[in-house]
Every structure is written in C-alpha cells, then in structure tokens.
C-alpha cells in the first residue's frame, strides 16, 4: 500500500523538533533587541523558516510529487499577490 512512502525515522523528526525549539527561543530572544522597523521582518523571517521546516519534514512536502509542490508554490504566490496588491492602497493614502 505504501510502497511509495519514503522510509521514516524517529530521529530525523526529533532533530527537526529540536531545531524548532531552538528557533522559538531565538525569536523570543531577539524580540528584546531593538531592530526598529525591521523587527517585524526579523520575526517573520524566523517564523517563515520554522514553518517551512514543519511543512517540509512534518508534512513531508519534500517527499511529495512535483504536482503538489507546484500547487503549494501557487498558493504562496497567490497569497503574496493578495497582500502585495492590497499594499498599493494603504501606504499611498
């Protein structure tokens, strides 16, 4: 039934989890540093990195077919467009 599934190992997931915990600590730690306006970008950057770990390993997107990868890419492009074009409005009012 699952011959197309890649072999899964407990240890890989535990490493990923450790990385996520460390990154959470990093987010909290850097929050006290004053980056000014860049703070939100630093926070989002780390969040994006964390979520891509979850998506790639925990949701095993990295083992999925090209079709599904393209679909996920489409989703993020579309969402980026929604936010991007909305911002032709607010900063220019």
């Amino acid at each position: 039934m699952h011959e197309n599934e890649h072999e899964m190992k407990y240890s890989t997931y535990i490493y990923v989890w450790l990385a996520l915990v460390v990154l959470t600590w990093v987010t909290v730690a850097v929050a006290s540093i004053d980056f000014g306006n860049a703070a939100v970008f630093v926070a989002l950057l780390i969040a994006a990195f964390k979520s891509s770990l979850v998506v790639a390993w925990f949701m095993h997107l990295k083992n999925e077919s090209a079709t599904i990868k393209w679909m996920v890419a489409t989703l993020f492009i579309v969402f980026a467009i929604f936010i991007g074009i909305t911002f032709t409005d607010y900063p220019f009012r």
Binding site: I85, T88, D89, Y90, P91, F92, R93
Partner: peptide, 10 residues
C-alpha cells in the same frame, strides 16, 4: 476612497 496609486495600478 482607496489611494489614487491603487486605482492606477488596478
């Protein structure tokens, strides 16, 4: 009432 820039881009 959206910005003029937005209207032009759209």
């Amino acid at each position: 009432g959206q910005s003029s820039t937005a209207s032009i881009v759209f």
